[in-house]
Nucleic acid binder design. Sequence first.
DNA 1: AATGAATGAGGCTTCATTCAT
DNA 2: GATGAATGAAGCCTCATTCAT
Lengths: 197, 197, 197, 197
Amino acid sequence: MARGRPPTPHRGDVILAAALDCFVERGFHGTSVPEVAQRAHIAAGTIYHYFDSKDALVNALFRKWKAEVATRVVAKFPGGAPVRQQFRVMWLEMFAFALAEPKAFAFLELHHHASYLDAESQAIDRGLKQFAEMMVQRAQSEGVIRAGPTVLLMELVFGAFIGVVRAHQDGRLELTPEACALAEQACWDALAAGHGR
Amino acid sequence: MARGRPPTPHRGDVILAAALDCFVERGFHGTSVPEVAQRAHIAAGTIYHYFDSKDALVNALFRKWKAEVATRVVAKFPGGAPVRQQFRVMWLEMFAFALAEPKAFAFLELHHHASYLDAESQAIDRGLKQFAEMMVQRAQSEGVIRAGPTVLLMELVFGAFIGVVRAHQDGRLELTPEACALAEQACWDALAAGHGR
Amino acid sequence: MARGRPPTPHRGDVILAAALDCFVERGFHGTSVPEVAQRAHIAAGTIYHYFDSKDALVNALFRKWKAEVATRVVAKFPGGAPVRQQFRVMWLEMFAFALAEPKAFAFLELHHHASYLDAESQAIDRGLKQFAEMMVQRAQSEGVIRAGPTVLLMELVFGAFIGVVRAHQDGRLELTPEACALAEQACWDALAAGHGR
Amino acid sequence: MARGRPPTPHRGDVILAAALDCFVERGFHGTSVPEVAQRAHIAAGTIYHYFDSKDALVNALFRKWKAEVATRVVAKFPGGAPVRQQFRVMWLEMFAFALAEPKAFAFLELHHHASYLDAESQAIDRGLKQFAEMMVQRAQSEGVIRAGPTVLLMELVFGAFIGVVRAHQDGRLELTPEACALAEQACWDALAAGHGR
DNA sequence: AATGAATGAGGCTTCATTCAT
DNA sequence: GATGAATGAAGCCTCATTCAT
């Protein structure tokens, strides 16, 4: 809300940011609470004023970023536009997120299956994919993309997306705007080849 | 000595199998050496007759399965065949591996970036992708698939492959032969749409 | 804060005292960290708030007492007095230390060669003997004591000193003031017989 | 008994020799049974054919060398000679042993108080010193050396002896025949100054 | 609210000892 | 006798968590 000067972020957020760094670098079990505290420039005990436990901390972090992704993608989603454009917007929006918040992206990717995520976090995780699945299904029923198991098509595209982003984050691939566009088109072709134009 | 039926497997292999189970279920840092020992039905100390440390154990496991993948894929690769068929064979071969050894596949996927992998393991890791990259590059120079950053195209396909396999392993997707064929074709289309036929 | 009566000593000192007891009784490798903790009436983990490792603990203990000896002996050393008196003062001062702090004396004796002492501790160790060596050398150049390898004479006296103290600590020898004086005189005679008077 | 060619030493002796090396270098608790086995070029289990336990091994080693020292010194002791010569012979004999078997000497010195020595080993330990004590006592009653606590005088000389030998073994002191003679004379003077000549 | 010392369970690893070969 | 794989107790150390300040 403050304008012009960055307000001191709340302690809880500082902790979440530090935890993000640590968990991405060394994993959940590979990170100790004192390490997170050190990175957040606070005492170890202080973390327990904001989070009940290390488990609660990862779960909070996970939900925070899942919600953020969902918000961003949904916010820009052009409900009434043609499927081809919906696809493009969603894809580019996710790209934008992955590039803007690489650590958050990596964190969500690495941890989405972890046993320390509680039931609620696991549930949240399914949201975005269900959204995408519905989009694919509608496109299929409109005959714009190929028939077949909806989940298969959706996972194909998601997987491709993740593969490209990871290659970029590992430094194996430069992501110019042209490259982004190419990837997006290739994914659409995977869905639609020989159907729409 | 026994012929025809598997003799008691060597202790080292029993340990590797137990470690694979544990690491896939709980991660490296989330798995304790006594847990691995228990799963292998041996005493904790015995593990240290076969592996110098927990680190040495993951690295051995990683190399074992990387080598296995490489062997299988390369063994069936039809060097002289047209690119379209090379692609299909490679894809199906990797699929076969992922279905036959789901834990090994998951393990390789989850750990390929881990800090506890030593230099040699990291080096081995690059093999398969380089092989795929060369294949893509040749196809590009033949004009059979679209132009663009080779790595991008390769990662797109690899990512899609992994996404589909993971969905299957998570029980979200049934992989019938038709579904396999569809996925394979969709990936080829991602590479080739509007080029070959 | 308390005046007159010793306040609760610092935790680090409690640990050092407990470690001294244990190391003298059972040696370094024969003493476990939990044993030290138990003797100090603290939890085992607490030791690691004060010392990085068991090795660091012995080294700290060694340096503490070496410094203490050096301080005591040097403090009383009569720089300008005749050699005969310097010798007597030094000898009696060391005796006083050995009787006042028998465990520290035994510890320093037993551990001065141990492989777990780091370079700095080993360096400190040489101090007192060098001091004694210089004293012997000066006495030789003044013709007050016999000629010959300085180190030999110095070690002779140091060894004799240690032998007597050990016999006392083992309960094989009562150390009355007369016995002390006799020992001191005998050592001087070892150095000086037939020279000074 | 064999002449000309060294017979293969008995396994038990090979083990004792290896144990001596290890115990001197790293101490009893700092040495593992497999280490001893490795140094003896045998399997770890084999040691248990010759010694009931690690404890039994040290005790056997201790007794072997204590007996050796006693034998050597007593063998040469000139029963009827004057005290001055008895002293010289004993001293030189011990010196000869310390120089010929430096590891055994160091071992006996370092371990003579250890808690893992059983009652019998501890008893044996006292032998040589009692022998020396009797010699001193007789010399005192003859008025050849100074009066005073017998144990004190004996420990003085023993301590001096050990100090010199250790300095030599540490490389801080060269032991020429002249230096040996000087040390011996100085020790005698410590006992006798102003009495005999 | 914030701290950081203290705790003790648990992790990785070593090792004395046993035993089937 | 000789071996060395196997054992599991115990050692050193880390860490999630608590609590007095």
